[in-house]
Simulated scan of single mutants.
Amino acid sequence: MIVTKILLVGCGKMGSAMLAGWLERGIRAADVVVIDPHAQGLPDGVTVLGDVDLLSKTFIPDITILAVKPQVMAEVLPAYARLAGQTVFLSIAAGKPVEFFRRHLGEAAAVIRAMPNTPAAVQRGITVCFAGPGVAQEPRALAQSLLEAVGEVAWIDDESQMDAVTAVSGSGPAYVFLLAEVMAAAGVAAGLPADLADRLARATVSGGGELLRQSLDSSAQLRINVTSPGGTTAAALAVLMDEAKGMAPLMTDAVAAATKRGKELAG
């Protein structure tokens, strides 16, 4: 892990997950300052401030992580404009493009836009990043190092792809949780006790995900591997893969809706 000074603005679920990953990888607690009036129970040694005005003028962060909700970002940013040109800003706010941050922080601001997802809480996340104008290789490497503490990292060169990234991976864990939820409900409808149905759904979804992670086969091939011709799985897949009302058209519509909403949040 690159030794660095970090300013973390907002320490909710994602901010806390990243902070835990950094400390586990060797970042010193003394090198992290958190700005969050509601932060509680943070690790010993981490400086926690309720307002950026309380930040020491001698603390110049190498990177400033913007981890507040996109709905309040516009009112939060102006207080950090004084750091433009001295730090790189890394935003994890959905829907907010690089130009939005440069508008509020000044054209001198070096901004990296990132979209992580909630499996970061167990260091199994994936984050996609886009580097705005003026972001050099060193701060890119720093951002990658910090984000790798909670999972995989990928980069894109076309920022317009970020809304689709958000729709697939940022929102995606909710789709997986919904799958487990409806599988359990279907099990109950088929006659299983609720606790057993929930246990079966959880173990099957999480185990299937781990098999997918470790396997060299494609997801399509893994599906084929578990499907015997004329068997029970084939009967279920005939419903789930219906071209008109199966999972594929539903997921396409869902991702399109999430992508559209991401564009609406860009203001």
Rank of each mutant, 00 (worst) to 15 (best):
K5C: 04
V168G: 05
V9L: 12
G26S: 10
A29H: 13
S91A: 06
A120W: 05
Q137S: 11
A180T: 10
K5E: 13
C129S: 08
E75W: 01
P139N: 03
A236V: 12
A184G: 02
P249I: 04
S56Y: 08
R202H: 12
I35Y: 04
V32G: 01
A203P: 03
L192R: 04
S218F: 10
R140Y: 07
L42I: 13
Q214L: 15
T47E: 15
A180R: 09
L196A: 15
A184S: 08
K5G: 01
R213N: 10
E148C: 10
A234G: 10
A236P: 07
M18D: 01
V239I: 14
D158H: 06
M183W: 07
A74K: 09
G191F: 08
A121W: 06
A30I: 09
Q144G: 03
A81R: 13
S56H: 12
V111F: 02
G230I: 09
E152I: 02
L8D: 01
K263M: 11
L7M: 13
M73H: 01
E210D: 10
G41I: 02
V88A: 09
D198F: 03
D253E: 13
A94H: 00
G12M: 06
V226W: 12
L237P: 11
T259H: 05
A164Q: 08
L42S: 11
A110P: 03
F101A: 02
G267Y: 07
S228R: 09
S169L: 07
V153H: 03
F130L: 00
T64E: 10
D157Y: 03
K260N: 12
A121D: 11
A258V: 01
R103V: 03
A110R: 14
L147K: 00
M247D: 06
I224V: 14
L237V: 13
R113M: 01
Q214V: 09
A185R: 12
L178P: 01
V239H: 11
G267R: 12
L216D: 13
L179V: 12
G262I: 00
V182P: 04
H104N: 11
D163I: 00
V33K: 06
I27M: 06
L146N: 02
D62G: 14
F89W: 03
A94R: 00
V255M: 07
A79K: 15
G85F: 05
A20D: 14
V165F: 03
I156V: 15
S219G: 15
A79W: 04
S160T: 14
G50F: 06
T118Q: 12
T47K: 15
P78N: 04
S169I: 07
V128K: 00
L49Y: 09
G50Y: 05
T252A: 15
I60Y: 09
G208E: 10
D242L: 10
Q214R: 15
P70I: 06
P70H: 07
A174N: 10
A180V: 08
K263P: 02
V33M: 11
I126A: 14
V176M: 12
D62E: 14
I92Q: 00
Q86C: 09
L105K: 06
F89N: 01
R103S: 13
I63H: 03
A236I: 11
V176E: 09
L19F: 05
D51V: 07
A174D: 13
G15C: 00
P229Q: 13
A194Y: 04
K5V: 03
V226D: 13
V150I: 15
V52L: 06
D31M: 07
E148K: 12
R140F: 06
A120F: 08
A120Q: 08
V68T: 10
